[in-house]
């Protein structure tokens, strides 16, 4: 499935955030948005998900304008992984993941045995099936993020949108989530994500989109797009981009801030 954005203007009714944004997301790729706080990443994602009205231009999936799609239809095509938080009622992990099935079952229906199986498979594929009956508000931030990713898997969409999936996680949990993203991408799911850490783009992204003040400033493969100049333009700080591949023996390009 190909998602394309044409000359998109997006934002809130009394507060435009960005405009003239065009890009195409290729099937099976991991597209990572980088940009400072307030650059419009989350607003763009909400617009793609139909949560905010399109203010100009359009969004198509396989050439079809999704502006007229109903919310359930969008939810069967695009799933959303919000930043992990504990603002839920104390549902179990299984109950949370099952909610991913809501666009697939009738309004008055409850999840069937089959839906339970799908939810269980989603947990298994992220290796967190042992948490199925743990209470969501009691597990760690990383486990919560994986739970929300599992919910998106249970939603069985071709495209998954993840809003800063590594935000507010400790180092170990960040790696856990990045690994999960890599595995999903290998299974053929298209991922659109954002990150506050350019290193993460090197780790998992096939392409990077840099966004500032609601406008696309760069788009391309990480090694082509992420460099000291573009990072300076984006964040206003001095950064070296260094390839440690020769040291570690595996691909490892990292951004090293120059401090002092």
């Amino acid at each position: 499935m190909t998602l394309a954005v044409h000359q998109l203007a997006f934002g809130y009714p009394d507060h435009p955030v960005g405009d003239q944004l065009s890009l195409t997301v290729n099937p099976g790729e991991v597209l990572c948005f980088l940009g400072p706080n307030g650059s419009g990443k989350t607003t763009l994602f909400k617009t793609l998900l139909g949560l905010l009205a399109v203010r100009g231009g359009g969004i198509t999936i396989d050439g079809e304008d999704i502006g007229r799609w109903t919310q359930p239809r969008i939810a069967r095509t695009l799933s959303y992984v919000p930043q992990q938080h504990d603002a839920y009622l104390p549902f179990t992990v299984m109950e949370v993941v099952l909610m991913g099935r809501s666009a697939h079952i009738g309004v008055f229906a409850s999840p069937s045995q089959r839906d339970h199986e799908i939810a269980h498979e989603a947990l298994q594929s992220l290796k967190i099936d042992h948490l199925a009956h743990a209470v969501y508000t009691h597990i760690s931030g990383g486990e919560r993020q994986l739970t929300l990713i599992a919910r998106a898997l249970a939603q069985q969409t071709q495209l998954v949108i993840m809003d800063e999936p590594t935000a507010n996680l400790d180092f170990g949990n960040q790696v856990l989530v990045l690994n999960a993203i890599q595995r999903l991408a290998r299974s053929g799911i298209t991922i659109i994500m954002s990150s506050h850490d350019p290193d993460h783009a090197f780790h998992v992204a096939s392409r990077v989109a840099m966004i500032k003040n609601g406008r696309l400033t760069a788009l391309g493969e990480p090694k082509h797009v992420i460099n000291p100049e573009s990072l300076h333009e984006l964040y206003g700080v001095e950064v070296d981009v260094v390839d440690f591949g020769a040291v570690t023996g595996h691909a490892a390009t990292l951004c090293v801030p120059i401090i002092g």
Binding site: L51, R73, Y80, P82, A87, Y88, S102
Partner: peptide, 18 residues
């Protein structure tokens, strides 16, 4: 059962197709 999804908040519930 839909009530459970509503309890996630407006945005998440809509993203789940409600």
């Amino acid at each position: 059962w839909r009530m459970n999804i509503m309890s996630l908040g407006d945005e998440e519930a809509r993203a789940l197709g409600i």
